[in-house]
């Protein structure tokens, strides 16, 4: 876990000395980095904020926790521990199960958690998404996979604040770009790791985008994913590239547990297949 804002907001260094700020850090992997030489994610807590995850799916494996957003008597959303739900009730859509399965494939040793923010009961209002995401950040998960976004401007500032909170408190938020060219959030924020899909067949290939806001491209076209009923389907979309990068973050944190979100982004950048380290150039050169 990284130094965060637990001591309250800091405006300037007035009442502490530099010695009081000492911390031990991990360095990012040496370059050239081999992401597959990183850990299998053991000891890293990954939360999938989505439609829920089917408990016991053979591709997903064990879940360490299942939570869902539900409405209280006044209709206000809040998060409850749903526990393992019966077949067919853990994930009505299949999307969250698909994402969890990809995280598990990339980082088989990680601890997986699920918080359901979409599906029956909540059909895309954004309130549930915000509630579930806030809960996940407050829990201090190491990595949060968010293969979702909202187009509603009224959630923009709340999501931006939440993404900043995650960034400063050591939760790496991996967010999916929208599949169509519309404005949506939070993937547009620089504080998150944003992901889209490339069209290559290589299931281990990921790339850095020199022209963000989408920062990384990962396998998401025609991929086989877990789905409801213990089954799998082939599908396409940024949603499925995102948990690949979330899994990579878990692998990285497993072997370098003190990395901060900005170091993780740096390590991913250096590890992307299209990034090479050359002689110092001129700023602005590609």
């Amino acid at each position: 876990m990284t130094a965060g804002t637990a001591g309250g907001l800091t405006w300037s260094l007035r009442d502490r000395t530099p010695d009081e700020l000492t911390l031990t850090a991990d360095t990012v992997p040496e370059v050239p980095a081999d992401p597959w030489a990183w850990s299998d994610g053991t000891g890293v807590r990954v939360c999938v904020v989505d439609t829920g995850v089917e408990s016991g799916h053979p591709v997903v494996g064990p879940l360490q926790g299942s939570y869902e957003v539900t409405a209280d008597a006044d209709g206000a959303p809040h998060v409850v521990d749903s526990g393992p739900l019966p077949d067919g009730e853990g994930d009505g859509c299949g999307h969250g199960t698909a994402c969890a399965g990809i995280v598990r494939r990339v980082a088989p040793g990680c601890s997986l958690y699920s918080v359901r923010v979409l599906g029956e009961g909540f059909t895309g209002t954004g309130d549930a998404l915000l509630t579930g995401l806030r809960w996940a950040v407050d829990q201090g998960f190491d990595v949060v996979n968010l293969s979702l976004s909202t187009t509603r401007p009224k959630f923009l500032e709340s999501l931006r604040a939440l993404a900043d909170q995650a960034f400063f408190t050591g939760t790496t938020l991996v967010a999916s770009a929208h599949n169509t060219p519309v404005e949506s959030f939070p993937w547009r924020f620089s504080s998150v790791v944003s992901v889209g899909t490339h069209r290559e067949d290589d299931p281990g290939l990921f790339l850095y985008n020199p022209a963000p806001p989408v920062e990384f491209f990962a396998p998401g076209q025609n991929v086989r994913v877990a789905w409801t009923g213990g089954k799998t389907i082939r599908t396409t979309g940024n949603s499925f590239a995102t948990p690949f990068i979330a899994g990579m973050c878990a692998r990285l944190l497993g072997s370098h547990p003190k990395l901060t979100p900005f170091q993780i982004k740096h390590a991913l950048y250096l590890s992307a297949a299209n990034v090479t380290i050359g002689d110092p150039g001129t700023r602005g050169e590609s």
Binding site: G92, H95, G119, F122, G124, S239
Partner: peptide, 13 residues
């Protein structure tokens, strides 16, 4: 249902 709640297109094979 996923397409409705997410506002995202989807393909499955």
């Amino acid at each position: 249902g996923w397409v409705l709640v997410s506002g995202e297109p989807m393909v499955a094979d």
